[in-house]
């Protein structure tokens, strides 16, 4: 038995003092305490230390530490509508963005019209355009332009010989370009100036090229006449796809309005709640 108890013994004595030893260890230490005066002395020291600490006067808190709402920066309980409105506006924004992305993915009525318009512009007869544009219920300006085009098409039909070509084109829109090229020289050969003009005003580029290539012998005044309308027509036809970009579809407008409405409603609701809460907390 060493004269000075080891730290392990002292640790046990400390725990023994607090009654935190298990039964067997406690029994062992008690038998050792009975034999070893050094151990007893160490226990007494520890007991005294503990007694002094336990007698340490308790200080009263110098002030009350109660909390005010401002101290905890507690947010007022917001109505559930506020996060709901926020989520709704985010959802609307996502949908809104999706309407612009759709041409690359799933076909969307709103956007598929742009390439269609280009195709229609490349084709000779006017019937081509109205057909896909009828699909675009959402596109207002396009729909507005349908009527005159239809009239022109009817006028063209009335002229006669080219009637077969538009019909073929309506059935097979992609394969029609060669047929157009073949029909145009015929028309020009017949000398149907009206038909030429009508065609030219509608489809400038394609119409003018075949005329120049296929009919080098024909008078230049006619080719010039066909060249001139292209200057005017791009104003009217490419106008439509441009409009489709700037002017939003019905769905897009609704979504845009929804985004703004949801955001504003959420913001006002939040402000009103906070103002009410601040008033109450004062």
């Amino acid at each position: 038995m060493s004269r000075q108890p080891s730290f392990r013994d002292l640790e046990k004595l400390s725990a023994y003092l607090d009654g935190e030893l298990n039964a067997s260890t406690q029994a062992k230490i008690e038998t050792r305490l009975a034999r070893d005066p050094n151990l007893r002395a160490a226990l007494d020291d520890l007991r005294l230390s503990r007694a002094v600490l336990r007698r340490t006067p308790q200080r009263r808190a110098p002030r009350n530490f109660t909390l005010s709402p401002q101290m905890v920066a507690k947010r007022p309980p917001l109505p559930r509508l506020v996060p709901a409105l926020n989520y709704a506006s985010v959802l609307a924004a996502l949908l809104f963005a999706f309407t612009f992305l759709s041409p690359f993915g799933i076909g969307d009525a709103a956007m598929s019209k742009a390439p269609m318009m280009e195709m229609a512009a490349a084709e000779a007869p006017a019937e081509e355009a109205p057909a896909p544009m009828m699909m675009d219920a959402t596109e207002e300006p396009a729909a507005a332009e349908e009527a005159p085009m239809m009239e022109e098409a009817i006028a063209e039909d009335a002229v006669g010989e080219s009637a077969a070509a538009p019909a073929a084109e309506a059935e097979a829109p992609i394969a029609q370009t060669p047929t157009v090229q073949t029909t145009i020289p015929e028309e020009a050969g017949v000398g149907a100036g009206e038909a030429e003009d009508v065609e030219a005003t509608q489809e400038p580029e394609l119409a003018s090229e075949p005329v120049q290539e296929g009919l080098p012998a024909t008078q230049k005044s006619l080719t010039q006449a066909t060249m001139q309308p292209p200057m005017q027509t791009p104003v009217s036809i490419p106008d439509t796809p441009q409009n489709s970009r700037v002017q939003l579809t019905f769905v897009q407008r609704i979504l845009l309005i929804a985004i703004v409405l949801f955001l504003l409603a959420g913001w006002f609701l939040r402000r009103a709640t906070i103002a009410k809460w601040q008033k109450a907390s004062k």
């Binding site: 004269r3 000075q4 108890p5 730290f7 002292l10 640790e11 004595l13 400390s14 725990a15 050094n38 002395a41 160490a42 007494d44 020291d45 520890l46 005294l48 230390s49 503990r50 007694a51 002094v52 600490l53 007698r55």
Partner: peptide
């Protein structure tokens, strides 16, 4: 346990302040 032992050493130095009942024994080996 360590804290109590250190406190015991420390308090011994100021034992004059302690009430008689808490006086630490002079002869303690620790």
């Amino acid at each position: 346990a360590r804290a109590r032992l250190r406190l015991r050493d420390c308090l011994q130095a100021v034992r004059e302040l302690l009430p008689a009942a808490f006086r630490l024994e002079e002869g303690s080996t620790l």
